[in-house]
């Protein structure tokens, strides 16, 4: 083991370099003075300033955050319910099918999810008149749909690990089922809820393809705006924007992974 540790060291360095050099160079160039994205000409934070005065980007960021917040919250509730059914209910007809289907959005290409949701929304509108047109609501519904699968999986694994005796013990000591849920089950699965929520939040912020399909006028998310800007050429303020997003996502991921670890007191 010790003998070939140099090999492991080099492999580790190369692996991390491959992953992080593009990100680091992007962060560095976001502080570039020059208008040319790939030529360094001195340190400056002017692109951040320009970014903050761009109403189009700020508006899109605000829309993205709203969508991410609402869809993550909805996904957390629905995903937890799904996990509850999958873990707690005794065998019922179609349980295996359901637990297989819950993971489908994880492997389904975004294009297909986006297209199928778009078709659904159009036919729903023509039948019940809701959702009227496409926009914020449809993006939220779409993001909730696929985020929910992630939440269900995270919560499900937490609930399987949980000692079923805990809830029975609470029942036995005189707590009614609703009380048991809030006193015992919820605190036990809360780390999974937090990480599921953060995961959904970042997935929603990230998504370009599905949002492009189900979006409508006046509801351009940040990735959509970036993508359309980059088509006209990469400008340094996009680097600044990307850096901000990386920082936010990194914080989210770190918190989520800290929540997933078993808590050790003392």
């Amino acid at each position: 083991m010790k003998k070939n540790s140099w090999f492991i060291t080099i492999a580790t360095i190369l692996g991390f370099a491959f992953l992080y050099i593009p990100i680091i160079s992007l962060i560095i160039f976001s502080f570039n003075e020059s208008k040319l994205v790939t030529v360094w000409s001195g340190f400056s934070t002017k692109w951040y300033g320009k970014l903050l005065s761009d109403p189009q980007i700020l508006g899109a960021a605000w829309i993205s955050l709203k969508i991410a917040f609402v869809s993550a919250s909805l996904a957390m509730v629905l995903g937890t319910l799904a996990a509850f059914v999958l873990v707690r209910f005794r065998k019922f007809h179609g349980k295996n099918l359901l637990s297989g289907m819950i993971t489908a959005p994880l492997v389904m290409p975004d294009v297909i999810i986006g297209l199928s949701l778009l078709l659904l929304f159009i036919s729903m509108e023509s039948i019940f008149g809701w959702p009227a047109g496409r926009g914020l609501t449809t993006i939220i519904i779409a993001h909730t749909t696929f985020s929910m699968a992630y939440v269900a999986i995270v919560v499900q694994s937490r609930m399987i690990d949980m000692d079923g005796g805990l809830e029975e013990a609470a029942l036995d000591l005189g707590a009614k089922p609703v009380r048991v849920f809030f006193d015992i089950t919820l605190p036990m699965i809360s780390p999974a809820l937090v990480s599921g929520w953060l995961l959904s939040f970042t997935l929603s912020l990230d998504d370009l393809v599905i949002a492009s399909f189900v979006s409508g006028p006046g509801a351009s998310t940040l990735p959509m705006v970036i993508f359309s800007k980059v088509r006209l050429g990469v400008s340094p303020d996009i680097n600044a924007l990307a850096t901000i997003i990386i920082v936010i996502v990194a914080i989210g991921v770190v918190i989520a992974s800290m929540q997933m670890k078993p808590r050790k007191t003392s």
Binding site: G165, E168, A169, A170, D172, L173, I184, P187, M188
Partner: peptide
Amino acid sequence: TNMMFQSYALFPH
């Protein structure tokens, strides 16, 4: 009735 569980089932939090 009350029950003492094999795993003890103490509330960890």
